[in-house]
Design a protein around this nucleic acid. Structure first.
Lengths: 215, 215
DNA sequence: GCTCAAATTAAACAATTGTTTAAAAAGAGT
DNA sequence: ACTCTTTTTAAACAATTGTTTAATTTGAGC
């Protein structure tokens, strides 16, 4: 067992533990829990299989750690915007803007999260933290008020979230299908994705928010 | 090797081959290629591992077979509507209607297809048949004409397909996430999905088709 | 009832899986 | 230089993987 004493440098320790996490993130992200072996990860680290279990007890434990971090990233931008003081329409615009740019940088994240959850191949650590913190942002109240004020169409927040997430996540999950279906190259795929962003923003905003009759 | 002679009944043969395919479909669909073993499938059949390879040479070959069938189902309703003689707007409405009802019956299909494609865990049999047949429906021409006639917004067919697919497939892929995120039961999830269908139909139609100024 | 191919089974194969053990190496405090 | 903990390694573990072999059962044609 590894004991931590305060007056130790642990410089080498920190770095290898972090190196393993990085490698695990990379491998799990692209191949999934079932699609890779601990030796794949060890090879990525350039080290030994035993070292993984030395730091992280088991493949499952390591995966749960990676998954939790990924889930946090996955919902981060949405949660951050929820917590601001902006008007609802501005929040929605900002979410679409930020989510999209973020997933442009991390296109494999949505598939990793959703597939891992659906598979339940691993005891899913869906932190109630996350669930609670959505409610804590006060977004529910803001949304209900906007509906009562006649600013927003009669639709639940849950269904609104489905609408937004569908158009934010799916395009990245279907990149390869899109590519093969239309026989286009990666550059064209990216161009289509960028176009999608502007379409979606306009479409969803127009649909959700009731335009005031011009006085 | 199995030799087929015309004057044989093969009743039992047909049935076991089909039974294996059914079991494989079920297991592959829910657990994915990497997430299951051939023995899982054999157990589902109630038979032997050797029998799978007797009929289908290997796990990969069996998977490719299942995948091709699933891919065909996956695009079937869309292709069928493309080939009709309807107006573009009617086609879109019908596609949304049919796709949605179909995936209500087969909610695991989108994740299976998209994850399998992204993983490329198996030599992907994306049949050029499919790709060609999209073009063969004449949908491209119909779409371009509708744009020139000012009926449809200036958007590519590819981006339109992204829009539609996102809202058809993603909700089923994210069922579990949705459930856990909002702490609701399956019945409520289904209700949200049904609501989503009507929202999406209205939203997409409204967005894509330019409403004529009232004469 | 005999024949012979097709269908099905049990057993074995080597390779890979996640995990553990036990030994070696590294490093800090004295 | 010595001690003792932490880190790293190589090797081994039993279990499971996909596949193959060889034997057995089945069933139809004669």
């Amino acid at each position: 067992m590894r004991r931590l004493s305060a007056n130790q440098l642990m410089k080498r320790d920190q770095s290898t533990e972090e190196k393993i996490k990085e490698a695990a993130r990379k491998v799990f992200m692209t191949k999934g829990f079932d699609g890779c072996s601990v030796r794949d990860i060890a090879k990525e680290v350039g080290s030994n299989v035993a070292l993984l279990n030395y730091y992280f007890r088991s493949k499952e434990k390591l995966f749960e750690l990676i998954f939790e971090g990924a889930m946090s990233d996955f919902l981060k931008s949405m949660m951050a915007v929820f917590s601001t003081e902006l008007e609802l329409k501005e929040k929605l615009e900002l979410i679409i803007e930020q989510e999209f740019d973020f997933f442009m940088e991390h296109p494999e994240l949505p598939m990793f999260i959703l597939h891992s959850i659906q598979q339940k191949s691993v005891n899913m650590p869906m932190p109630s933290k996350v669930v609670d913190s959505i409610a804590d942002t006060g977004i529910f109240e803001q949304f209900e008020k906007a509906k009562q004020d006649g600013l927003v169409r009669d639709i639940s927040l849950r269904n609104t979230i489905i609408l937004v997430m569908s158009n934010m996540h799916y395009p990245f999950m279907s990149k390869n299908l899109h590519k093969e279906l239309h026989q286009i190259d990666d550059e064209q795929v990216m161009a289509d994705l960028r176009a999608h962003k502007t379409y979606v923003k306009e479409m969803i905003i127009n649909y959700l928010f009731i335009s005031k009759p011009e006085a």
